[in-house]
Design a protein around this nucleic acid. Structure first.
Lengths: 202, 202, 202, 202
DNA sequence: GATGAATGAGTTTTCATTCAT
DNA sequence: TATGAATGAAAACTCATTCAT
């Protein structure tokens, strides 16, 4: 039971920290502000997290976990045709947007704050980007193998380029406030670019 | 003569600052480190820049200036055919890579550190991103008007998506050390994606 | 209980600050010296006062409060005869001397340091001087109205002149160390001057 | 000739320093400001004065010198009657007011800034006050000896009380801007107080 | 477990003074 | 003699972290 209570409190602190970090940024946030956000003693914070950096790591991991969850819910080899894959991509994109839509500032935290905080964090971020890259690459490889994507595709780097578009989309839409319309336009534009390119078809 | 010397010293401090900022990040950098990097008294720094933030602004503006220079050297309406435009895009990409190749960490500074430092700086960055966006959009509009790009193109958002790919490329190649080979692969992959998309042509 | 302890500590810092300020002057005093005076960490000071200027304001207000208290305990219209008024003046003078006797250097702080520190403080001081002036003027007006003071008296400026004598007396006696004798002489001299003037009576 | 030029320059710096000190106060004044006031190199200052404190001492001595000059132009034993002495006192008061009227802020410098700067300066000021005291006392002793002042006068402390009135008058009139009227009222009020006291004559 | 007072290392910034030109 | 670039000591202030209650 104490276990449960402890876990709950840790979770509460984590969420308060995420909120304050998202609002003020890592450096401008003080541990005192996080504590006050919960009407909690300053010292209590240190019973649940070792340091300010520690809770920031936890927040970032939480966010990365959600992204991972989205990716894990889809299979890279599920699609057998172009249209299936396109549908799958749109589904993934929407899920990612939704994850960040909950708290738009989290995107800023993840993409803007985090890499500048510590080498360790930056490496973790880079690892995640690489992981997302190989994940996307697996989808592309599947498409090439099944013959519905171009055979000459440099799947490794193309995967990175696609991911950058997706994450930029998250950033952009997150910045655009109430954004359902922008979201739809972004998905249309980026999947259009991704699947057909910009040049006119012969 | 004093004028010249002063300008030289200011430049030297600017470059030292850029180096240290790039290496350690804004917050982890102390003015003392910048001074020590030049074997210079701490107070001397303050003869040339008003504050740590001041020199950081100057560094960022310097970098943005170089990017602007690259874009300004090309005309959005110069290309009259698909192949001309594709050549132009590759030329711009190479020039951008070269600009950041001088000091690879500058990309990190610009894209990762800067937005989190001050509201003013963030706005400046956002303005630049928007500007680069409209610039790219002008190229796309030209292509649509001349009939060599898809007529249905959402040129505004597609421009942002393309830019995100390009800047991610800069980041990626910059991170890859000695990188001529990676650069060529990136350019091939991203222009391939950009012009033809990933799907097999009917 | 914490409330009480907090108030006590604040008071202790206030008194330590008064002592150091009185001894070394505002500018020559460092917050570190105040802290060391109490064998206290530097940061602790900033838990109780916002800044060095803040604690100085508090010290000055404390001193001005004591003076105001002395004046408030007497009524300008109480005296109905010359001898009553003379007794009242001596009583006020003694009370003022006593107030500053506790810590002699406070007079220096109030009259010498304070006006040069900040515009705000100077205005507060000027307001106090003006207030003490009108207070004294009320006593003089009472005496004129009751017919025991000279009818032609310029009560406004004469009040200021009298006050300057009194405060100079405070300063002088404060500077004279163990001073009962000097105090008595000063009171005799200044009330003699005040009531009879220096010229021989016809 | 060089001698003369040197003396002139020193004088110019002295006056510039007085002006800036008077305007901004000792601590807020920087040596650079004094130099700029003369369109002069910063280093040049140090060819004429050893330090910032050095020039401040010189400025204060200059002001005290003027006061001394006023006192020296009168003789404590010159007056042989009450009316002669009263005329003499008014003459001295006017001369003192005139000396400070040239630059009103000098009064603030002398009475407010100076005592807080250094122990040495404070002692010099105290010595001056004592000196002015004995000077005034000599006048009073003369009056008592010649029989036109009260024989019981405590001439030492009465002298200090009178001086405090006079200097407070300088301060007050100096603070009152264009002040001929205030000056006349002050002289009337303070000499009235000084010679006749406030009580009605029997 | 909870608290919050105490701490002091670490940073930015100023400016009197020096000294090479 | 004049200059002003260079210097670094000194001071205010912040805040993550500790620990006694």
């Amino acid at each position: 039971m104490a276990r449960v209570k402890t876990e709950e409190k840790r979770r509460a602190i984590l969420e308060a920290a995420a909120a304050v970090f998202a609002k003020r940024g890592y450096h401008a946030t003080t541990v005192g502000q996080i504590a006050k956000h919960l009407d909690m003693g300053l010292g209590t914070f240190y019973r649940y997290f070792q340091s300010k950096l520690d809770v920031f790591h936890a927040v970032i991991e939480e966010v990365m976990g959600e992204v991972t969850l989205v990716l894990a819910s889809e299979s890279p080899t599920a699609s057998t045709s172009l249209s299936e894959y396109r549908t799958q991509v749109e589904r993934i994109a929407r899920a990612l947007f939704a994850a960040f839509q909950k708290n738009r500032s989290l995107a800023r935290l993840l993409f803007v704050e985090a890499p500048g905080i510590s080498v360790e964090l930056n490496e973790k971020l880079q690892a995640a980007v690489t992981f997302f890259g190989s994940s996307t690459q697996a989808y592309l490889d599947n498409g090439v193998a099944r013959g519905f994507l171009r055979p000459a595709l440099d799947t490794e780097l193309t995967a990175l380029a696609i991911n950058s578009m997706i994450f930029e989309g998250v950033r952009h839409v997150a910045a655009a406030g109430e954004a359902t319309e922008v979201l739809e336009r972004w998905i249309a534009a980026s999947t259009g670019l991704m699947f057909e390119g910009i040049s006119i078809r012969p």
